[in-house]
Design a protein around this nucleic acid. Structure first.
Lengths: 219, 219, 219, 219
DNA sequence: TATGAATGAGCCTTCATTCAT
DNA sequence: AATGAATGAAGGCTCATTCAT
């Protein structure tokens, strides 16, 4: 009976997983319900039945992957309370990249966000903000403190904080896009250790950048 | 006859310019021939007549805007021969951003590249490489020398060079995307001076990042 | 067990009542099972379970509302045996209009017939005839006698009888349609007294018409 | 060349004519673009190309048939200036019925109006009013004068005028519907002389009705 | 050179229906 | 007795493309 129950929920779940893969690869607009359903082994009407809309399916996928991503790769990656700012930035970048690189559904969420960044579907007004805003603010806090620490003599310039935050996010998202665009690395995805190593270098780069920005206008 | 010639090129040119605007704003897939032709004041068949394909039109637009962009905003922005590496990096970022932010057709090319980065159309296999590779290599050279300069004691690590290059490009492209995604800035575009100022801060950030990467593994 | 029985009939009955409302408002084709079931608080399968078909549900609704209508508004409206022909015509028109105007389920039946008149569903072949034919014949008898009375010198012309009958029905049904089509009256339905008053004027009009037809060809 | 021109316009025209037939028979909602295009020997996209929408096609059909109907069967049917009120009413009813009974496209317009009366498509907000309102007002004027003539002692009661007008229209429209609903007459349509004869009897009936209403409350 | 007419493939969606439980 | 899950058929619409002129 339980197996049955699982199987009953199976279609819905298979639909979400197939959709996650297709949306992540093609983006919202270019993805077609037909392809998704074919992969899921379901009829096209199934989407309408379970999610009402293509929009509804997209929102469901986003929410699903968001929940999953936050659970598996929290922003602080399980850091201890007394972690340094640098450690926290590194953890953040690691989590961000782990969510968006690699294959399989751990990476949907980041890819969806990357897609959404480049070509907003307009579907995710509320849900996307609830997913993205906290992330932004979390990063913002770290950056602000890093700037303050690098230049304690004055209050962090707000536009400098925003600039640094965007630069960091930009570097990460570009990694997600670049792997499809340029054939820099093979089509094969990065392994988690490779992703972590990449994250750490981006962190190092960004720390250097933040400190340079922090002392802007002084030398 | 000359009038004829001019008029002939007129339709073709209006088509390209209208297409540039639409492709830049919507991306290749979402752009429709109808909208382009409506803007150009031409019939839908005109595209197929002049460019054979939607693909053909896209390629033409890309090539056109590329030529235009390189001419108006060369990589080195007219720097003198004996300019420092830092000055050359700053010039490069300025040119990159000037090509992709702002409105009007000076900004098509960057926006096309940004779109292409996020959602490759698959149309630009050859032509895109001819446009993008040289740019990459030019930047690569600057970065390599900057790393060498920051850490003359050893030969620049190749992967470090690539990383820094991608980070710089990522920051720039993100600026192009972000303005549509987040409502950080109004829909109104940045003015050239604002773009230059932004470029200079990104340059400062990147120089800090490059130097941090250059000494990686040493301290 | 009795509770069970009641509940069983409850679902069926709620379905019929919800369907009556929706069919009356939208017509057979435009009505959707989903809307009906939503209103009835039942699952969509319930229709197929209880009535086999959308057709079956429609037939059931028709029969139900017919039975109800005849019971509440009989053709003669409880007239005495010795009522005059004019009184009987007036009663008939009153009952016809009371069945089709006004809101709530007393008015379903007339509205269903009005819909069916304008856009036959093809579902009600037998059942509809059993509902409509007697009504027609009843009216036919009244009309025939009125013609005979108005012109006793000759046997009523059969085509004249049919014409008058159709004219009367046509006037009544048009009242049902008109209220939706023209904004003659507000969306708000007529009260029973208003309906009766309207019926009486249509009766007066029709009596004048019948008499004019009765003497056709004589003056 | 002219033949070509005619043929070029042919598709659009064939579409309108096929649509007129289908809309008249099935109503707006039940009619399908596919059936229309099949009959017209055109692809489904042709509708979109020529009329943008199913709505657009419907509006075009309505306008086309309206223009045609008014031209062929004007309200006054070419009556002379000094025609009596009775003659004018008869002419009106003749034109109304000639527009809606019979087969072929002379009868579309009336059938469309009959359909629209029973189940408003919501498409014809403006165009329908321009077609229907004048007709209504024209009839209204005749009816008002007839009432005044039948009872010169007092000003015609406005609600009486409306009632009579609606009764007349109701009788006519019912004739259009009835032929499909009841099998009173064969599926074969009426010939023009039969239609005229029918119209004249309805006119006689209505005159009797109007006079009865005119003296309402006096005897 | 340039275009209006027309098309076919494909997309999303709705709806009545069926089936296993 | 009743239902949730799932489906197939069909509908309207969009879009890039072709063809004759």
């Amino acid at each position: 009976m339980k197996a049955q129950r699982l199987w009953d929920e199976g279609t819905r779940k298979r639909l979400i997983e197939a959709a996650g893969e297709v949306f992540a690869r093609r983006g919202f607009r270019a993805a077609t319900i037909r392809e998704i359903c074919r992969r899921a082994g379901a009829s096209v009407s199934a989407v309408n039945y379970h999610f009402r809309d293509k929009d509804g399916l997209y929102a469901a996928v986003f929410e699903y992957s968001h929940r999953w991503a936050v659970e598996k790769y929290p922003h602080d990656m399980g850091l201890e309370e007394n972690a340094t700012l640098e450690e926290r930035l590194r953890a953040f970048i690691r989590s961000f990249l782990l969510r968006g690189l690699g294959d399989g559904f751990p990476a949907w969420h980041g890819k969806l966000i990357a897609q959404e960044t480049a070509d907003p579907s307009g579907v995710l007004s509320k849900v996307a903000q609830t997913a993205i805003r906290p992330m932004d603010e979390y990063l913002e806090g770290i950056v602000r403190e890093l700037i303050r620490k690098a230049n304690p003599s004055r209050e962090p310039n707000e536009s400098a904080v925003q600039l640094c935050r965007m630069n960091i996010v930009g570097q990460c998202i570009f990694q997600m896009h670049a792997r499809r665009f340029m054939k820099i690395a093979d089509p094969e995805e990065l392994s988690p250790p490779q992703i972590v190593a990449l994250a750490d270098r981006i962190c190092r780069f960004s720390l250097g950048g933040i400190r340079a920005i922090a002392v802007e206008g002084q030398s």
